[in-house]
Design a protein around this nucleic acid. Structure first.
Lengths: 126, 126
DNA sequence: TACAGTGTATTATGTAAGTAATACAGTAAT
DNA sequence: ATTACTGTATTACTTACATAATACACTGTA
């Protein structure tokens, strides 16, 4: 599992871990049932206190993205696809709305908005 | 100048002020040369320490959205329209890119993305 | 110059965030 | 039971953030 922590970015370590793992789960690189790197291994590798990692994992658990089993390890939650789709959908709806609100506020036409988004998508896919 | 502060939202007061005034400027409700409510007046009205307001204004100044003149007051910066447009543009490009990245990560098609954004825009405009 | 308005630098205080030390608790295999 | 892994609750320390009190500095005008 590839995680990169920037100790000088100002972004809290636990948050960097949460965001990166959530990303890996949402994008499917970590799939249902996968065992995650143990709290101690990961904390050793990132040169960080185990509790910091445990805290990150706790947050992911509270999002229902993973399950913790004391004495055994951490696993990607076996969510029905329906539910993961809901999570993805909510995430996207939220950012889409922010985008639309800003577009209206700065006075872009619908056409302009769609063109800009379309262009960004094209850049990402090439 | 209509500002609403929620003391119980958890969002820092100075940030609420910054965000709301930035919004007013970007949307054009406060235009070039306008004098802003004085630090003391605004702080009295919001029942807050003057330094809290001063801090908020400082941040807006560092974004080049307003100018401070000691002993005189605060004014919306006289930016050439070109520059305000640039600021708006940068703001939007940034969020548009985030939107596109998330869309790709969760596996939406371009068509789906544009439909969702279009729908959000329609809701905002009706 | 005096004054009455501006904004501000400095300093202090209360609170929360982030991280870490330590000791504890569950599981599985031997 | 012992061992060697798992994860975790409690507690404490440090730092940063948000706000406030106070005293100061600039500007324009009578």
């Amino acid at each position: 599992m590839l995680l990169e922590i920037d100790h000088h970015s100002g972004v809290p370590i636990y948050r960097q871990v949460v965001d990166q793992i959530r990303q890996l789960i949402i994008s499917g690189e970590l799939s249902e049932g996968c065992q995650l790197e143990s709290v101690r291994d990961l904390s050793a590798r990132l040169k960080v206190n185990p509790m910091t990692i445990s805290k990150a994992y706790s947050l992911l658990e509270s999002e229902n993205l993973l399950e913790r089993r004391r004495g055994v390890g951490l696993f990607i939650a076996g969510l029905p696809r329906e539910q993961t789709d809901n999570i993805k959908n909510e995430l996207f709806q939220a950012i889409a709305e922010k985008t639309a609100i800003m577009a209206v506020q700065i006075g872009l036409t619908d056409k302009q908005v769609l063109e800009i988004i379309g262009e960004k998508l094209r850049e990402l896919r090439k």
